[in-house]
């Protein structure tokens, strides 16, 4: 059930778009995309600002590398255990761009008998890297539909992505990699019992949705071609706030657009917010400088303390009578 519900949800979305687009091009070509972008932008900002209001915790040193020591002969691991902002920047870049935390994944196995072993587990890292990078490149590549005069850097990305020169509309490497990686990430959840046990519909849905987006995109480019000039006209109409619905665009395009709209609207409500959240990982984005910089607890309230001076003021006469020394006569 945990898999079937999101599976049929994605199928239903495709069917709704295929049927609905016949009824109203304007709804699926203009109003739903606009609404989805609004939900995405304001939902994202709302979520992130809500996070921003929460207090910053005490810095959590993780033991991935040697921390800065007072002993000069002990070498600090400046990337894995940074004590400066620059080091933190480096660690964050590695985390965001290369998923360094996933690279450290391990697996535990019991060998015959009771021998417990730990081994490296790189497949989630590799699959995640392939998926996210190809998704980013595909996103950047789509800017050729979003701009009137396509800037040169975007043309370079497009050119490199298709440099194998396979087929007539040239095959994009990232199309293959994305669909492959999404399939892998899905199968990983289905086939590994431990992962399957902890997977929820909210884990399967984004994978299936992105597979749907990729599949409709691939169909439109290589198999059931749509008139791209009209498609760009529609997209440019949306971006210049003077929407138009050109004739002759097939329902397949509207299905693609509807799935993307669903992804955008679903984004701020779901685990996909890790896109913003990764920057706020407390064990990654704070320097290990607990011994150099004092952490002031953000929810400290003023505590009334009774100092020795005040104590002496209260009991000075009695102390003198008892012969105790006082600091102030």
């Amino acid at each position: 059930m945990k898999i079937l519900i999101p599976f049929f949800a994605v199928i239903a979305l495709v069917v709704i778009a295929l049927v609905g687009a016949q009824a109203s091009h304007a709804l699926f070509g203009i109003w739903i995309p606009y609404a989805a972008v609004l939900i995405f932008v304001f939902g994202f900002i709302f979520k992130v600002l809500k996070w921003g209001r929460s207090p910053v915790p005490f810095r959590i040193p993780t033991t991935a590398g040697q921390m800065k020591s007072f002993a000069p002969w002990i070498k600090q691991n400046k990337l894995d255990n940074p004590s400066s902002s620059l080091g933190v920047l480096g660690r964050m870049l590695l985390e965001v761009l290369a998923f360094r935390s996933l690279f450290r994944n391990t697996k535990t196995q019991l060998y015959p008998g009771t021998k417990l072993t730990y081994g490296s587990e790189k497949f989630l890292w590799l699959g995640g890297l392939a998926f996210h990078w190809s998704f980013l490149i595909i996103f950047v590549r789509h800017f050729r539909f979003f701009m009137q005069d396509v800037p040169y850097p975007i043309q370079i990305v497009e050119h490199l992505d298709s440099f194998l020169q396979i087929g007539a509309p040239l095959l994009y490497i990232t199309d293959v990699v994305l669909l492959g990686a999404v399939t892998f990430l899905f199968l990983r959840r289905v086939m590994m019992p431990q992962i399957k046990y902890i997977s929820l519909p909210a884990d399967y849905f984004p994978l299936l949705l992105i597979f749907g987006i990729g599949a409709t995109g691939v169909l439109m480019r290589y198999f059931a071609k749509v008139p791209v000039v009209s498609v760009k006209e529609l997209v440019m109409g949306l971006l210049t706030f003077s929407p138009v619905i050109p004739q002759g665009i097939s329902s397949l395009f509207y299905a693609h657009l509807f799935l993307v709209s669903t992804l955008l609207a679903y984004f701020p409500l779901s685990k996909l917010m890790h896109m913003g959240g990764v920057f706020l990982s407390p064990t990654r984005n704070m320097a290990n400088n607990n011994r150099e910089v004092r952490h002031i607890n953000p929810w400290n309230y003023p505590v009334h303390v009774h100092t020795y001076e005040e104590y002496e003021d209260d009991f000075r006469e009695k102390m003198k009578k008892a012969g105790l020394p006082v600091e102030k006569e």
Partner: peptide, 19 residues
């Protein structure tokens, strides 16, 4: 203490500059 201003900078860069 919180780092809201850093987050605001990040949101501005992300949404205004990229999207």
């Amino acid at each position: 203490m919180n780092n809201a201003w850093k987050i605001v900078i990040g949101v501005v860069i992300g949404f205004v500059a990229v999207f």
